[in-house]
Nucleic acid binder design. Structure first.
Lengths: 218, 218
DNA sequence: ACAAGTATGTTGCAATTGCAACAAAGGAGT
DNA sequence: ACTCCTTTGTTGCAATTGCAACATACTTGT
């Protein structure tokens, strides 16, 4: 456990608690479970009432599609959270299955313990709550942006909005995006080759230039 | 102010605080502003650090699109919140402009006051925090569902998933959806007539039947 | 019952997209 | 330099979609 405190101290969820982590953990009844490779952490359909934090290894989020095969939604490495939204939403059943990708250590925090102020009413509790709130709010803002992006009906509209968002983010007409073409296509939920085609059209029409991941808006 | 307590008591954000609202409000430095018809509550680009709650009237959320005309994102009536995510995310600049639709009373809560425990450390504070967390988490779950929906590339896939979600929600093969066709098309971000066409194809292929907003999956 | 308005379905057509298959360019390792 | 592998661009084609215009219910108010 001790060995992970360095990682944990730098996580947004524990910002401002740093030196008192051990105290907080005992107060929260935090528990670490170890999962061997390809073991299920929890199943879709389960009710989730605790937050998971990857301490070692990595986990995959999977979801069954209509035809019944598992689709990979995300892979989370060390320091990543999962289950927060579901756990705090209280009524929510998990739509995803979580599987350990490698041998993994997962730290679990019970939501009830986070929400209920402990007898000794330690201050870190309060800080943890506000940290959670901030995290959740940030994810909310992110998801709203994503919905706006996906609500565009043509590839060009999606690209235009995405590049505008990036321009705003970097506060510059020239910037490097964190995706290669295939990942960008996935992110925008469009076909890679169609994306490539549209990008070149936009270049040929003089709206922008690009080399690999670096874009310049004109 | 007094006059609004009945509305406020039934809002999820104040669940469990009911009888002590006046105390909480003074403790939070809550303020009510009145806006006349078509007055701006705040502009896109503003930094938002307080939550708004519609007490009377209604507000519109507007956003400028690429060509510069305002697009209506949502209309919020009495009892609705706005600005929560942005306010708690802390670093976020509003992408939307909020305008009073009619003469409206808006209750504002400063995020700083919500996050900072007051000297008298009243209990309601704690409850308010956990309520906010639950609300945010629920919105998160909702937005995740929405992203999943919008990530589908064909109208049929979107419809199939949406109807499955509704089936799960109502726990029945037959249910009534809260949208008419035009609103459903907006929700799925597709053309209304194309939606209608696809829906009829799916009916003709024997996957479902429907009358108006009532659907039966076969 | 009638008129007016709204919701839904229908259809032709052009534009966009996904798909598949391949070409070209760039990188990494030997 | 050569090979293998990854990334990006290209293109033909079929399918899906948006758009526009219109047809057909269904409501609502009088």
């Amino acid at each position: 456990m001790q060995q992970y405190f360095t990682v944990l101290q730098n996580m947004p969820i524990f910002t401002g608690i740093t030196s008192d982590l051990p105290k907080l953990f005992s107060c929260l009844g935090a528990k670490v479970h170890t999962y061997s490779r390809n073991t299920v952490v929890f199943y879709g359909g389960d009710r989730v009432n605790r937050i998971g934090i990857v301490l070692k290894g990595s986990v995959k989020l999977l979801k069954e599609d209509a035809e019944g095969h598992a689709v990979l939604l995300a892979a989370l490495g060390v320091g990543h959270l999962f289950g927060e939204a579901l756990a705090f939403a209280d009524t929510a059943i998990s739509p995803v299955t979580v599987v350990a990708e490698d041998e993994s250590d997962i730290l679990f925090l019970e939501v009830q313990h986070i929400l209920t102020v402990c007898e000794t009413s330690c201050k870190f509790h309060q800080v943890l709550l506000t940290n959670m709130l901030r995290l959740m709010a940030q994810k909310n803002v992110y998801l709203n942006q994503r919905v706006e992006l996906l609500s565009k009906r043509t590839i060009r509209e999606k690209l235009t909005l995405y590049l505008q968002q990036q321009q705003t983010l970097h506060n510059a007409r020239q910037f490097t995006v964190p995706f290669d073409r295939a990942d960008l296509a996935d992110f925008l939920c469009v076909d890679r080759s169609a994306l490539s085609r549209e990008l070149c059209h936009m270049r040929d029409e003089g709206y922008l230039t690009f080399t690999k991941n670096q874009f310049t808006l004109l």
